[in-house]
Design a protein around this nucleic acid. Structure first.
Lengths: 230, 230
DNA sequence: CCATATTGAATGAATGTTCAGCAAACTCTG
DNA sequence: CAGAGTTTGCTGAACATTCATTCAATATGG
């Protein structure tokens, strides 16, 4: 059995770069960011229940008391970490959408493609997401943030489905289809995270694209590499 | 905003019924089962990281030391709980499959329907599953069991997709479609678990059925109530 | 009474939080 | 520009709490 890819992004090493002071006395924001990254590392490596303040501090190569100095409690560190991932994911798909141009089919494809981009879809981040999912139901604070694909995203998917239906007169029910699509994306993430089977970012994206192709046959067609807009 | 259903199964109250002795000195197996149910309750109510031995014991209305007597450690209790849920889910879909008859389309529909049956798909169980998912990546012991839809299930889906393709000459790639289908089911579970939006067991099942209908138009058709085989 | 399931107080390990002190950078002053 | 003073980020040992585990004593059914 070969363990397949889904390679990590750089992570871990020297993230605090930029033009900021380093070593002792970095700026407040830089330290916070550094600790958030260390938290994601720990969540990915050890899971939620085994993520400790000591592990985060060690990961950031700082002292034990540091987290309570910059965040105030473990709880607040975790919320800040979740918020950070939420904002990052949100920004990511909005950018992809904005860059996609005016065509509805292109826009939908851009959203789907963005979901499997290395920047947001890698072992480390997926594992961290899943760690939060596992706690979300019992923690009101997490609930709003842990559904990365939030109301805005859901509404956008719905509008796009509606648009494509209007353009080519499909039979499907747009509301149900939007739900199906976002559930599929989340389900593929979950499988990537589990990382047992032979699913890679590429095969997941391919599966999602095949779905688009099947559901919107009048908008997409199989091309030499992946699907294309008609 | 109305909070929607996904009603719990009886749970919690008087599960230890049957013809077994109760009160002090129940049989070994009855106690174990009782503790496993209490564990699922706790996982669902408090999440993995806040599930304590004390909470489990209290939930089962037994003393603090009881878990270490019947299971040996917290770790082993959790593994036994996961194993129990795994077996239950596994048995459930195999039964549904066996009852479905010889027709391939019926069999696939039976599997999908089974996935949203109250017995396995309810707030309590879904929350417990998700609690384990969050820890699975960092715990080898959980990994094999926490993907409820295991290799057997995956292979069966693949065979069914292959069968339907052969019967009606569809264009899709069976391997990718089987992945898509199981990811969709898992993604719908995840959304049901999160329980924020207006998704109920019924709408989830409807979405999954719409998917079948779209992908296998030559096998299913929209009926007066849900989809039907052609 | 014997075997065994059950109890619950005691124990110790793990871990989040606090805080008095330290040291680096910045500022003021002569 | 040197040195004193001040601010502020940072440290790590001490503390308090939570929690899994142990086990001697107890209750129960046969």
């Amino acid at each position: 059995m070969k363990t397949i890819d889904l390679e990590d992004e750089p992570a871990e090493t020297e993230r605090r770069g930029g033009s900021e002071r380093r070593g002792r006395k970095a700026s407040k924001e830089v330290r916070r960011q550094q600790l958030i990254e260390a938290t994601i590392d720990s969540l990915a490596k050890r899971g939620y229940s085994e993520t400790t303040m000591a592990d985060v501090a060690d990961g950031a190569k700082l002292s034990r008391g540091i987290v309570n100095f910059h965040f105030e409690s473990k709880e607040k560190l975790l919320v800040a970490t979740l918020q950070y991932m939420y904002d990052e994911y949100s920004t990511h798909w909005r950018n992809a959408y904005d860059k996609a141009g005016d065509n509805t089919a292109d826009r939908l494809k851009a959203l789907v493609t963005a979901d499997f981009d290395r920047a947001v879809c890698n072992k480390r981040k997926l594992a961290a997401w899943c760690a939060f999912w596992g706690e979300a139901k019992s923690r009101p604070t997490y609930q709003a943030l842990s559904g990365a694909r939030d109301t805005d995203y859901q509404n956008l998917l719905f509008d796009l489905c509606l648009g494509l239906k209007a353009e080519a007169d499909y039979a499907f029910e747009p509301q149900a289809l939007a739900l199906t699509l976002s559930a599929l994306l989340e389900g593929l993430w979950l499988r990537l995270m589990m990382g047992l089977e032979d699913v890679s970012r590429e095969t997941a994206l391919q599966a999602a694209n095949e779905f688009l192709l099947t559901v919107f046959p009048r908008h997409y067609a199989r091309g030499s590499s992946g699907i294309q807009r008609l």
